[in-house]
Write a protein that binds this DNA or RNA. Structure first.
Length: 657
DNA sequence: GCCGTCACG
DNA sequence: ACGTACGTGACGGCA
């Protein structure tokens, strides 16, 4: 890789303004959307309806006709013609699956179903089309003419485009995101699966049939490469024609256009920018942790009388419950559980489980973070570039992979040492902005509960307030233990609590737990009412939706299996809350991004951790950024209770003031 | 490839 | 009497 990796990323002018989005108006959006699709319920294809809509007998699963373009003038002429239509499906073939390493070896495109073109730069290791020449032709229609791009997982192609030197693109329609919005419970959104599911069992050419094991795409014979690559563009185009009307029909177009698609670029920019990891800090900590692990293991072996693998649940069970005769507690499928809460109980009566508890968390830190994160540092940017998955959750949240930077430890001092190794570049600080109690705030809004709303309107400590209500005492008299109980109950409300779990969590009897819950719902009666109407609606429609009308299908809501049914009921309650909070955070990211562009700042968004945004902020922009971030996040969506954001800054993640 | 476990919100 | 908190990703062990 060369200097084409962007260091400071330039942003295009957003189609977005800072005005808040009015979701009450469904904007007709897909001008090209044709009435070809007839999905009755979400994600459900009705063959007879499709036959009606295609009286000519057009088969959705027909193979397309694909063309190889090797002549530069021909490429120019075809792309210019396509540019007149204003839209095209586009797909890169590259050297790597990792978009931070991938170099283009060719690209495919189409603006018509059953057609496709492939432009090979290299095939069978021979140079064909000069990529630098092709790049300029592409630039003309992607940057200058701003053609609307359709793609499957278009964030990948956008990142490759940017790293290649094409600085901007109009990301119009990601078929993967559309499929996810249409059916967030499906979980599989790769092109092969989507073609099978939505194009009447269309079988795509498998990557593994084209690219031999150990080879890359530039090794593939030209004829095979043309078919494989062109098909990707063709299928993406066909899926676009399928999905656009389904989105319309399900009132998902506005969410798609104004939230999910604008977010693609924001995530791409975050990923490209990455975050710096101070490997020396990690290495210093590694020495310390490794010593402690060795010490603990030595003590355990001494105590037990022999060596064994204490990371093997099976071997550990033997040692604890057979050799040492400790009382087994929870069972799981394979035997007796050695989960942390079990070990903590046993730790009161025996030194071995006590040592194992310490060992567990240190080994976890070492295996998951200390040994892995330094290896994930990009050798050119010297930073860590996570990948945010936009289609990874059923609720609307993001997830983070390779590495997951949404689960970096914070809850204890050892773990926090990992967080402290994430540091800003010279002249910058890290700024963390997080929503205070966003899920309970969302609950107050959705339920309209006057007591809950009042607490947030008065900016009270919600757990203390809850305690004062359920224990019927003045809030100044709430004891820490009572606050802890209230906090657990508040979590329980969000998750759809049961008396059983609450009693376990609090170490109290189940009847005591039941009366806490009863008391809670007596005090927050609108919350109970809200949940009931949510469930009623879900039973009726088989769908739960968020404030932005994001949908999660819950077909099992009326299951005759009571356990399954109550499981789905918890999902319904939690999805409405967690998903709405995720909606708000996405709006906030878009708004803050827009404000940052308006002010033309050097500062960059680095990470999102569900209710928190982390920025790398230029020191001379600190005050401005604090204002922008707070304003953008707090006004992201108008609720009937105030959204509050707390901002901290520091010279590393984890130590913020 | 699944399971148990555990890091986060 | 059942046997249970929601959403993720990643690890090592084991078949």
């Amino acid at each position: 890789m060369d200097s084409s990796i962007p260091t400071g990323i330039e942003f295009e002018t957003s189609r977005f303004t800072t005005e808040s989005i009015d979701f009450s108006k469904a904007v007709p959006f897909f001008e090209k959307a044709k009435a070809t699709s007839l999905i009755a319920a979400i994600g459900e294809v009705r063959p007879e309806a499709i036959a009606k809509a295609h009286p000519g007998g057009i088969k959705k699963n027909e193979k397309g006709v694909y063309t190889c373009i090797t002549d530069v003038d021909e490429l120019k002429s075809i792309l210019r013609t396509i540019a007149l239509s204003g839209i095209m499906a586009f797909d890169f073939e590259t050297t790597h699956i990792d978009d931070m390493k991938a170099e283009p070896v060719g690209f495919s495109f189409t603006n018509e179903r059953n057609k496709g073109y492939y432009v090979p730069f290299i095939a069978e290791n021979k140079d064909i089309v000069d990529p630098l020449v092709a790049k300029e032709i592409l630039r003309e229609i992607i940057v200058d003419k701003k053609i609307k791009l359709i793609g499957q997982n278009i964030k990948y192609d956008y990142k490759v485009l940017k790293r290649w030197g094409i600085e901007d693109a109009y990301l119009y329609f990601d078929t993967m995101i559309a499929a996810w919005l249409i059916d967030s419970a499906e979980g599989i959104y790769n092109l092969d699966h989507l073609a099978d599911k939505y194009l009447d069992g269309y079988r795509t050419i498998a990557y593994s049939d084209v690219v031999e094991k150990g080879q890359i795409f530039s090794d593939v014979p030209l004829d095979k490469a043309v078919d494989y690559a062109s098909e990707d563009a063709d299928i993406a185009y066909r899926l676009y024609e399928e999905f656009a009307p389904i989105l319309e029909k399900n009132n998902l177009s506005t969410l798609f256009e104004t939230v999910e698609m604008p977010l693609v670029k924001i995530l791409a920019h975050m990923e490209l920018h990455g975050i710096f990891l101070d490997c020396e800090r990690i290495e210093a900590f590694n020495g310390e942790v490794t010593n402690r692990i060795v010490e603990i293991e030595k003590k355990v072996y001494e105590e037990v009388g022999h060596e064994f693998n204490m990371n093997s649940p099976k071997q550990l069970q033997e040692v604890l419950f057979e050799e040492r005769g400790l009382p087994a507690q929870k069972k799981n499928k394979t035997g007796f559980s050695t989960a942390i809460e079990v070990l903590e109980k046993l730790a009161l009566i025996d030194v071995v489980p006590r040592l194992i508890v310490q060992n567990r968390s240190l080994v976890k830190l070492k295996n998951t973070y200390i040994d892995v994160l330094p290896e994930m540092v990009n050798e050119h940017t010297h930073r860590i570039h996570t990948s945010f998955t936009q289609t990874g959750t059923a609720t609307g949240r993001l997830s983070s992979r390779n590495p997951n930077l949404q689960n970096i430890p914070i809850k204890n001092d050892d773990g926090r040492r990992i967080r402290e190794a994430f540091t800003p570049q010279e002249g910058y600080l890290l700024l963390s902005a997080d929503y205070a109690q966003i899920e309970l705030v969302v609950l107050a809004h959705l339920s309209g509960d006057p007591t809950l709303k009042e607490a947030f309107n008065n900016n009270e400590d919600i757990h203390t307030r809850t305690a004062s209500l359920i224990f019927d005492i003045h809030k100044d008299l709430v004891m820490p233990e009572q606050r802890r109980i209230a906090k657990t109950i508040n979590f329980g409300v969000i998750y759809g609590m049961s008396a059983f779990r609450l009693s376990n969590e609090l170490g109290i009897s189940r009847s005591d737990a039941s009366s806490f819950i009863e008391n809670y719902f007596k005090r927050f009666s609108f919350v109970k009412g809200f949940m009931n109407s949510l469930l009623e609606e879900a039973r009726e429609t088989k769908v739960v939706h968020t404030i932005l009308k994001r949908k999660r299908p819950v077909p099992q809501i009326n299951s005759s299996n009571k356990m399954e049914q109550s499981g789905v009921e918890r999902i319904v309650v939690n999805t409405a809350i967690q998903g709405s909070a995720a909606d708000i955070m996405k709006l906030a990211m878009i708004k803050v991004d827009s404000l940052m562009k308006q002010h033309n700042v050097k500062s960059r968004l680095s990470l999102q951790v569900h209710d928190e945004l982390i920025f790398e902020v230029a020191k001379d922009e600190l005050e401005l950024m604090k204002e922008i971030v707070q304003e953008g996040m707090e006004s992201a969506y108008h609720l009937s209770v105030p959204l509050r954001v707390s901002i901290e800054t520091g010279s590393c993640w984890g130590e913020m003031h």
